[in-house]
Amino acid sequence: PEAADLRSLAKLLYESYLKNFPLTKAKARAILSGKTSDNAPFVIHDMKSLLEGEQFINCRQIPRQDHHRRPSVSSVQSDLQREVELRFFHSCQSRSAEAVSEVTEFAKSIPGFLNLDLNDQVTLLKYAVIEVLIIMMSPLMNKDGTLISYGQIFMTREFLKSLRKPFGEMMEPKFEFSVKFNMLELDDSDMALFLAVIILSGDRPGLLNVKPIEDLQENVLHSLELHLKMNHPDSLHLFAKVLQKMTDLRQIVSDHVHFIHVLKESEINMCLHPLLQEIMKDLY
């Protein structure tokens, strides 16, 4: 009976994952490998293709600032380039904020989560969402680039690297992580359980009542362990390997928040989405 409970928990979380996250790993890998009846994604590999591809992106326009254009053509081009980079960054923020809502809905579906102290629910989400978003981003990535805009666009890693500092440095750690994480070959049902484990981390700073969180996590951990054994019978120590990724994730999030702080200091036109601002304030 206990194993049956753990299996039904895995099933419930997988169903919630499919309901809340629009682009699954199965779909993303089909797009990346060209095994889908949908159109191939539009490829963004330079500034020109970024401008062309912008029409695909749900881009929230930011107001242009009146700056005195210097006479040289190259500086006008460089102004335009800065504007396009910033606009792209803003569309990434909008998508991230939407994704935070999806993660929140997923968290609410974890049995027992809504019975936790409301302050603890907020703390768990605050600390987990960026980790979850990075995990969710991994299936969209390969060593050459990443799907964006719900899989309609493929942006090359080289192009992202070519953006000016610190934009150009922001995605590299995520690619490095993703390439290694994807080698574990988790599927969507494994991912659903792993995300729940991340959300239910009892060691987040400022939690008021750790015990019920740890109890919930322990149950999901048992379910994940059993599920991985059944779903990947030939993959040795997969459970331990998956859990080890949680340490890498924390470092990546801490570096990411640092990048955002640098951006806030250096970019006059930067405004951070209020939800992301709320999450990143006093986070590490």
């Binding site: 309901k19 929140t104 809905e105 609410k108 409301l118 907020v122 605050k126 209020p274 939800l275 999450i279």
Partner: peptide, 19 residues
């Protein structure tokens, strides 16, 4: 929760599926 008003609201909103 005071400093996390949006997260708080997202948590308290009932999802469309819940009616």
């Amino acid at each position: 929760t005071e400093r996390h008003k949006i997260l708080h609201r997202l948590l308290q909103d009932s999802s469309p599926a819940d009616g």
